[in-house]
Amino acid sequence: MGSFFSKWQDGSNETKDRQPAADNTSFLMKCVGLQCLTGPHTDEAKTGRHTGTTVNLVLLGMAGTGKSASGNTILGQKLFVSRPSSTPVTTKCQAKQTEINGVDVNVIDTPDMFDDDIAPSVRGKHVQRCKQLCESGPCVFVLVMHVSRFTDGERDIMEKLEKAFGREVRGRTIILFTRGNDLQQAGMGLEDFLHSCQPDLKKMVEKCGNRCVLFENNKSGSDQVEKLMTVVNTILKDQNNF
């Protein structure tokens, strides 16, 4: 499993169409003990990486949480199918590429592969395909959750992720909460939400090293993507990948 997480590709990737993200001021949002830290993106953070490295962002989570929409926000364009539906829209793993501040980013959208109703053989195929799409470089898992909903199926999702991808997944996971506007309308911030959320959700956040970001996928602008990428860079540096 270690080789899956540590594979590198020395600039030999095929050149693919990318949509550059705007280079705005970025922030580090790492909620530790309900304390959110923010700070500007330094030159070292922008340049302290290996040329030719592709960072893989794997979007995981239950159906309807906004994985595809979040992928489109990261990409800066609508490349994944995302629409309201009573049935899952994404049925297979797929990848699209972009470039963010000079870094090649491979965004991988996935179906709800941890639904208890999915046959183990189907789940195994999704996991294997996801691993194949991550072979271009280091991998960070983005667990997408609806900020206004926490289901029974999500309570043990970290254990399912570890079973599928190995124990390393815990140190490489960021929780991305969607529907940030719901908090804004309630006069709350992410810190307020985490302070008052269910105990099981708090435990999940702690298991992920308190790494959380908040997305509003109907919002234009790249600040929220910059926040996500700052946390991604922190993970990769901690893992000696940058």
Rank of each mutant, 00 (worst) to 15 (best):
T98R: 06
M113F: 14
N241K: 12
N218V: 09
I235S: 02
Q198T: 07
R83T: 12
G187Q: 01
S85M: 00
T151S: 14
P88E: 05
T87M: 03
K227L: 01
G48M: 08
N181Q: 06
L75K: 04
T230W: 00
H126I: 13
T15H: 13
S148K: 13
D43W: 01
G52H: 09
L190D: 04
K78V: 03
S70R: 04
V225L: 00
S70P: 06
I157R: 04
D104F: 05
K78F: 01
E168Q: 12
K7I: 00
G71C: 05
V81E: 15
S6A: 02
V127C: 09
S136R: 11
T25W: 01
I235L: 10
I108K: 03
M1E: 08
L133H: 10
R211Y: 07
T178C: 05
S196L: 04
T151Y: 01
H41K: 07
G137T: 00
Q94M: 11
T38M: 05
H50P: 08
P120S: 03
Q94E: 15
V140Q: 04
E168P: 00
M29R: 11
G137K: 02
L228Y: 05
K67W: 03
C36V: 13
V105F: 01
R170Q: 08
S26D: 05
V147T: 14
C36T: 12
R129D: 14
E226K: 03
V103I: 11
M29A: 07
V140T: 09
R49W: 11
Q9Y: 10
M62P: 07
G102K: 07
F114M: 12
A63L: 04
G166S: 06
P111Q: 13
K207M: 07
D152W: 00
F141M: 11
Q132Y: 10
I100T: 06
R179I: 12
P88I: 10
R49S: 05
M158S: 04
A95T: 11
A63H: 09
M1L: 06
C208E: 00
K92Q: 15
G33P: 02
W8Q: 12
F141N: 05
P88K: 04
T73L: 10
L214T: 13
C31V: 14
V144H: 06
T38G: 14
T15G: 08
E206R: 12
G189F: 03
F242H: 07
K163S: 14
K46A: 10
R83S: 12
D112V: 05
W8N: 09
E162T: 14
M204N: 11
T110C: 13
N240C: 11
K30A: 09
D223H: 10
V213H: 00
G124S: 13
V103K: 15
N218M: 13
N217R: 08
